[in-house]
């Protein structure tokens, strides 16, 4: 037996995890591989034609201008939304780490409770807020006299970005919250003692120490934003599409499973690449944390 395999099997950690691993393999990995495989075979009348492995579908998808445009939109919407989530999440996590008692509990409830409602419901809520002339937001702004004309928000990139940011915010806050509240405050006192003001201490001590959590949050939020198809579909409107929306439409609406599978392959692979880059960037910036004597 290969030493690595032996260590996994007999290292003590494998068997307790076995039920979960088996569950994921049977109900996630295998179905997914099957689905992805549809993109590389020929299907005729609902049956796979044997021995017809082909890269032709992938090839034609990659040659399609529309697919590239959709992929680009998926990418920049996810990037903007992820960065926005970080900017919004950091102060909340920092506030949590600086307060105590009842405030801590309230912040935690506020952060976690959105996760208890379905993302679909929250997306519909944004539909009500952002929607057209009668939307809550436009009504309020018009009433306050801040705008003369209703803003056109729904069915734009911004509607999608706003919706996604709010829905994915907890995934950014939670890792930051854990790291920031567990940090060593004496490092900040040391910085103050060496002459640094509050702001400088924050950016030279607090932020660098939280780099691992920042990048964990970035990777997580990017992955779920990049592959989200519900928010763009509902808040982007009928003619709005992204790569993830296309996967859904080709598979469920058009019933072109081959196309759907090929697009899913592209979506998944590119997502892995981006997440890998984020994680690699993070560990490059926090290399100090892995140093041991």
């Amino acid at each position: 037996m290969h030493p690595v395999v032996r260590r996994v099997l007999h290292g003590g950690g494998f068997w307790p995890a076995f039920p979960a691993v088996a569950f994921l393999v049977v109900f996630l990995v295998l179905p997914m591989l099957t689905l992805l495989a549809f993109g590389f075979v020929t299907i005729e009348r609902g049956r796979i034609v044997g021995d017809t492995f082909t890269l032709q579908h992938l090839h034609s998808a990659l040659g399609d201008q529309l697919i590239w445009r959709l992929a680009w939109r998926s990418f920049y919407v996810a990037v903007i939304s992820t960065v926005l989530a970080l900017v919004l999440a950091y102060p909340v996590a920092y506030l949590f780490s600086q307060t105590g008692g009842i405030w801590r509990t309230l912040i935690l409830i506020a952060v976690i409770s959105p996760l208890l409602t379905s993302a679909l419901v929250r997306t519909y809520a944004w539909l009500v807020i952002l929607g057209g002339r009668r939307g809550l937001l436009n009504q309020t702004l018009l009433q306050l006299g801040l705008i003369d004309q209703p803003l056109r928000l729904l069915n734009t990139d911004w509607a999608v970005i706003i919706g996604m940011t709010q829905i994915h915010l907890p995934f950014m806050i939670l890792p930051l919250l854990a790291v920031l509240s567990g940090r060593d405050r004496r490092l900040e006192e040391a910085a103050r003692n060496l002459g640094a003001g509050r702001v400088r201490t924050f950016f030279t001590v607090v932020v660098p120490m939280s780099v691992p959590a920042i990048f964990a949050g970035l990777a997580l939020v990017f992955a779920v934003s990049y592959t989200n198809f519900i928010v763009p579909q509902l808040l982007g409107g009928g003619s709005y599409s992204t790569l993830a929306v296309q996967v859904y439409e080709q598979t469920v609406v058009v019933l072109d499973w081959t196309r759907g599978a090929v697009l899913a392959t592209i979506l998944l692979t590119s997502c892995f690449v981006f997440v890998y880059l984020i994680v690699a960037g993070g560990s490059r910036l926090s290399r100090w944390s892995e140093i041991r004597t």
Partner: peptide, 19 residues
């Protein structure tokens, strides 16, 4: 404020910046 005092402080666990 602590940063305006000319007082060097050595912490019990040294509080060196690990990064």
């Amino acid at each position: 404020d602590p940063n305006r005092r000319s007082v060097g402080y050595v912490f019990q666990n040294y509080a060196l910046f690990p990064h």
